[in-house]
Design a protein around this nucleic acid. Structure first.
Length: 432
RNA sequence: UGGGGUGUAGCUCAACUGGCAGAGCGCCUGGCUGUUAACCAGGAGGUUGGAGGUUCGAAUCCUCCCGCCCCAGCCA
């Protein structure tokens, strides 16, 4: 493997002469001195070029540099208070590796549609780099959290027969001679099967919804992490969620300070995110929302504004639990204390970010589950294996799904989930 | 799928009541030895989203189409 020098390591090489490669962020030249700022994904480096100290050919090459040209530079590393970052390179040699002509993204403002049409180039900007690094931290902390707690990763299929929720929201494709297949909306049902084998499991992958949504909280393709735990009831489930969310948030605060600063995130809003989170039942939440002037009736799911309102009741995420069964999926366990509701919960993030988790205890009674499938007019034969799980040693179990992009958006403080994934898939956007 | 906006130079926008299509940035040329989105001077750059219509005259008014943005619903 070649010994590539990265900008972040230059602090340890003061006094040495080094060569490194990168892309030009900005190039400014005066009559006899020029400043070239390079980036390489690990940091930015100011290179200083004095006309007197380099040959004519290097000087001409420096003057020809344009935004995003890739270069190899050689020079002495030195400390200088005038340089951003405190370290700079006294450039003596320059090789242009790949010229960049008329880079479309300039240092001034652009509209969001222009930027997303140039997403492949926009990713190079400092801000997008910071978001990707926070996303990376979120993903790694998710894996670490479950690994440390002895969960077993089980990868669930992305191609499925009709199973999940409603057909209108499924992406459809041809599957050999077996007819139609659909892109997975959730791994949960498969995970329930795995939980009966491994006890504590999770899946983590892309998921697909053909919903024609055009809000700041929706994507057609997004990443969801879904744990499923045998013998956990709804209360255990919420305790797991608050531990999990807190772990991810605190990890980003510890390890991604620099990126959160680039994003100008007010991190004081994230510091309080520690267990326990406040819990309010759906029924109590409706009553309180009505008291606060919201026109919402019992039985309806909370709207976006209602969720934002609920989130203001605390500086932590808030659990709303036990929703009406009509507002929720068929597989959620009926509440024995109030049959109008099911043992479910949403976790609502502060600052208007809304639902980041939806979870529930699962219906473990075969006959009740079957009657729920019939009530919802779901294709019974597609669920035969799912019903089997209730025929052969049924078990109390619970789980939830957390949307990675929503969590990243919340932690970064960015308004729209589309910025939190490298190449967002939306109703009107399939490229780049 | 509803409701509300919007489309003018490469980008972001301006152009009064229908009357010569403009600015900033970027780009090109020249100047400047410590710049931080450098600065100063000059220059190039346009089928006003598309198709029709009204008018002496349309970026502007009318009809249809297309793209995008925001909000809502669906959810994570």
């Amino acid at each position: 493997m070649s010994d590539v020098i990265r900008i972040k390591d230059l602090r340890n090489r003061v006094g040495q002469t080094v060569s490194l490669r990168g892309w030009v962020c900005t190039a400014r030249s005066s009559g006899k001195i020029a400043f070239v700022v390079l980036r390489d994904g690990t940091g930015n480096l100011q290179c200083v070029v004095s006309k007197n100290e380099v040959g004519e050919s290097v000087w001409e090459a420096v003057k020809a540099l344009t935004h995003e040209t890739s270069v190899k530079v050689t020079g002495g590393v030195r400390e200088d208070a005038r340089s951003p970052g405190g370290v700079e390179l006294g450039l003596t040699e320059l090789t242009i590796l790949g010229l960049s002509v008329d880079f479309p993204i300039t240092p001034k403002e652009h509209s969001t549609s222009f930027l997303f049409e140039h997403r492949h180039l926009w990713l190079r900007s400092k801000r997008q780099e910071a978001i990707m690094k926070v996303r990376h931290e979120v993903v790694q902390s998710i894996r670490d959290f479950f690994y440390e707690r002895d969960f077993c990763l089980v990868d669930t299929p992305l191609l499925t027969a009709a199973i999940g929720e409603e057909a209108g929201t499924l992406f459809e494709t041809e599957y050999f001679d077996l007819g139609k297949a659909y892109l997975a909306q959730t791994g949960q049902l498969y995970l329930e099967a795995a939980a009966a084998s491994l006890g504590m499991v999770y899946c983590f992958g892309p998921t697909f919804r053909a919903e024609k949504s055009k809000t700041r909280r929706h994507l057609a393709e997004f990443w969801m992490v879904e744990p499923e735990v045998a013998w956990y009831d709804s209360d255990d489930n919420m305790r797991l969620q608050e531990d999990f969310v807190s772990y991810v948030v605190q990890r980003c605060l510890e390890r991604r300070k620099t990126e959160l600063e680039v994003l100008e995130r007010d991190t004081s809003r994230l510091v309080p995110v520690e267990p326990p989170f406040p819990r309010v039942s759906y029924t109590d939440a409706i009553a309180r929302l009505q008291d606060e002037g919201r026109s919402i009736e019992w039985g309806k799911d909370l709207g976006a504004e209602d969720e934002t309102k609920v989130a203001t009741w605390s500086d932590k995420p808030v659990f709303v639990f036990n929703y009406p069964k009509e507002a929720k999926a068929f597989y959620m366990k009926r509440n024995p204390d109030d049959p109008r509701t099911v043992l479910s919960n949403d976790c609502l993030a502060p600052e208007g970010y809304g639902e980041i988790i939806g979870g529930s205890q699962r219906e473990d009674d075969h006959d009740i589950l079957l009657s729920r499938i019939r009530e919802e007019n779901l294709p019974e034969d597609a669920y035969d294996w799912y019903l089997d799980l209730r025929k052969y040693g049924t078990f109390v179990h619970s789980g939830f799904g957390m949307g990675v992009e929503r969590v990243v958006a919340w932690i970064c403080g960015v308004p729209h989930v589309r910025e939190t994934i490298a190449f967002p898939r939306q109703m009107h956007r399939i490229r780049p």
